[in-house]
Simulated scan of single mutants.
Amino acid sequence: MSWLILILSGALEAVWAAALHRTFQASGRRWLAPALLFLVSVLASMAGLALAMQSIPTGTAYAVWVGIGVVLTSAYAIITKTERPTNARLLLLTGIAACVVGLKVVA
């Protein structure tokens, strides 16, 4: 169960990163919705990480949480055309994803 919570918390990290980006792109009152999404998702993400760390070693939990967040945030940026999907970027992101899976296998 802790691993599922950790994976969902990592996904929420990508949500709050994207919401933070949108918050600073918005003007007028249009920044309020992404700012609220940022606050809710960052709190839920941190709470999930803290909960998962009760049964998963700290270093492993943090590395998996960050790895999932990085890969999903980058995927979102590529899909929304904020970043270019270069071969090097895709290869390195695949490496991060492989390391996250590896940490699950050896933990």
Rank of each mutant, 00 (worst) to 15 (best):
M1W: 02
S2A: 07
L4N: 02
L6S: 05
L6K: 00
L8Q: 03
S9K: 03
S9A: 12
G10Y: 04
G10E: 06
A11K: 09
E13I: 10
A14I: 09
A17T: 06
A18R: 06
A18F: 14
A19E: 05
L20G: 07
R22A: 11
R22L: 10
T23Q: 02
R29C: 15
R30P: 04
W31C: 02
L32P: 08
A33T: 15
A33Y: 09
P34T: 15
A35G: 05
L36Y: 15
L37D: 10
V40N: 05
V40W: 03
L43Q: 14
S45K: 04
S45Q: 02
S45V: 00
M46P: 00
A47L: 07
L49N: 07
L51M: 11
S55M: 13
S55T: 09
I56M: 00
T58I: 13
T58R: 06
T58Q: 09
T58K: 05
G59T: 12
Y62E: 14
Y62V: 10
A63K: 01
W65D: 08
I68W: 09
I68G: 01
I68V: 15
V70Y: 02
V70I: 14
V71Q: 00
V71E: 07
V71S: 03
T73I: 05
A75E: 01
Y76T: 11
I78K: 08
I78D: 11
T80Y: 05
K81V: 13
K81T: 03
T82D: 13
T82K: 15
E83C: 11
E83F: 05
P85C: 08
T86Y: 14
T86W: 11
N87K: 15
A88W: 15
A88K: 14
R89I: 01
L90M: 03
L91N: 08
L91I: 13
L93R: 08
L93A: 07
G95W: 05
I96N: 05
I96D: 02
A97T: 12
A98I: 07
A98S: 13
V100A: 04
V101T: 12
V101W: 10
V101Q: 04
G102M: 04
G102N: 02
L103V: 01
V105K: 06
